[in-house]
């Protein structure tokens, strides 16, 4: 066998070995314990409220924070909001704080939020909301998107689409702060 053929075979063998290593690495990274799972600390997020005042998620530190990304043009978001209001009413005294984050024009939310009867804080923005969603783990850019952050600032759940009522109650009950916040 010529020297050049040996070199080609050696390169091919090494490529095959590298492919195996790469596949193994992918399998490891794709396991549930990889970076895509909730469990990390929530980054600091600053967004304007409907008066233009900057608010930070850490303003509600010590509470169980449910950040619900929504928009006035998003039908499933509008469908979910009454249940979130119920949750705020039911669990607010025990340390739950729902925060709405609207990917929308400020004026649309100023009109839309009272019409929906939203009592919890509402933040609003365009690209700022997209950035906040991504910082909180979103990679689909789809609404509704909800992130549950416990009293210690740790992300305990993320979800695209509407919650089922029982599912949300269970999540809240499991993660309420022990002292009520």
């Amino acid at each position: 066998m010529s020297s050049s053929k040996k070199q080609i075979l050696a390169v091919a063998a090494l490529c095959f070995a590298a492919a195996g290593v790469g596949f193994g690495a992918y399998r490891y990274l794709a396991q549930p314990h990889s970076i895509d799972e909730p469990g990390g600390m929530a980054p600091e997020i600053t967004l304007n409220d409907l008066t233009g005042t900057p608010r930070q998620l850490s303003d509600w530190r010590g509470k169980l924070i449910l950040v619900n990304f929504w928009a006035t043009w998003c039908a499933p978001c509008l469908h979910e909001i009454p249940m979130l209001m119920d949750m705020q009413q039911q669990y607010g005294g025990r340390g739950l704080q729902v925060v709405g984050a609207a990917m929308d024009e400020v004026e649309a939310v100023r009109i839309g939020a009272p019409r929906l009867g939203i009592q919890y804080p509402v933040l609003v923005g365009d690209s700022e909301i997209i950035n906040a969603m991504q910082a909180l783990g979103d990679q689909l850019g789809a609404l509704p998107y909800s992130v549950l952050i416990n009293a210690n600032g740790m992300i305990v759940s993320r979800k695209h689409g509407e919650f089922e009522r029982d599912e949300l109650i269970q999540l809240i009950e499991q993660n309420l702060p022990t002292t009520g916040g």
Partner: peptide
């Protein structure tokens, strides 16, 4: 491809990227 394989596992996997 590597990027898509490492996308977050979401509780609603049927939802497609836009």
């Amino acid at each position: 491809d590597a990027g898509s394989l490492l996308k977050p596992r979401d509780s609603a996997p049927a939802i497609l990227p836009v």
